[in-house]
Design a binder for these strands. Sequence first.
DNA 1: GCTTTTCCGAGTATTGCGATAGGATTTATT
DNA 2: AATAAATCCTATCGCAATACTCGGAAAAGC
Lengths: 143, 143
Amino acid sequence: MIQLKLSTKGRYGVSAMFDLALHHGQGPISLKSVAQRQGISEHYLEQLMGTLRKAGYVKSVRGAQGGYTLTKAPAEITVGDIIRIMEGPTAPVDCLLADTENNKYCVRAGHCVTRGVWAKVRDSIDAVLDSITLADLANEDKS
Amino acid sequence: MIQLKLSTKGRYGVSAMFDLALHHGQGPISLKSVAQRQGISEHYLEQLMGTLRKAGYVKSVRGAQGGYTLTKAPAEITVGDIIRIMEGPTAPVDCLLADTENNKYCVRAGHCVTRGVWAKVRDSIDAVLDSITLADLANEDKS
DNA sequence: GCTTTTCCGAGTATTGCGATAGGATTTATT
DNA sequence: AATAAATCCTATCGCAATACTCGGAAAAGC
């Protein structure tokens, strides 16, 4: 019903990365424990972590006592990084994306006027998401 | 594939209202002409205009030579007004909405920390959308 | 060798989007 | 009065994506 909304991919991704940030420096953290603490399906979270691993934000250790660790310090990973990996570009409409066939829409009268609106929305979203790091969230949690 | 995205309801709604703003003061504008100028399915646009009519942003005149007119001056209608009507509240996650059963998610560890992030995103989106009126778009189109 | 864990691909139920269809009603025009 | 133009209303429907679930293979500590 409500659009302009994050899917669980983005939400769970941020929650899981936040959880890893809280345990940063404690060795590999198993997805089982992350899933339990954050209230996420473990099997589903596996898929999401695969995306984050391929993007280079986490590394994994297989086998018993294995798990995931952040590849960078929590202060060097922003919420925007995670959202963009999990949900793709944060453009509110397709025609703001890189030039593709989608740009056919932009020849429409009126559309290119409203296009400026969507660009401003995108920029303001990115500004907020890029201003918050995992370290900020971890600090907020402790206080 | 891409979330945090507007559906066509919001985009078409803004485009149609922008079109009505361009023709404000010229009597009822038929959906047929709006749909042609903006490149929207006429029948689908009917449904969207029904939503805007029930919300009081446009009034309709039935019969031949009928159509739609804005109920307020273009300067008094913001893009945010239209988006909120067409897409529902612009909250990126459910738990930011008014207290409902959705708040069950908020007892989760970590979630209430990330909740602050989503609130900031929502506020920045609203600030942008509420700062732009249909008159702004119409002026931009003429220049 | 057993258990724990990541890794991988497939399948699936539900949902919402983006229409389309068909008609009923209203009103200006001829 | 007949016609055409337009809004209004309800229903349906294909498609794609979401949010999982399932089953198992592979790796590594114990």
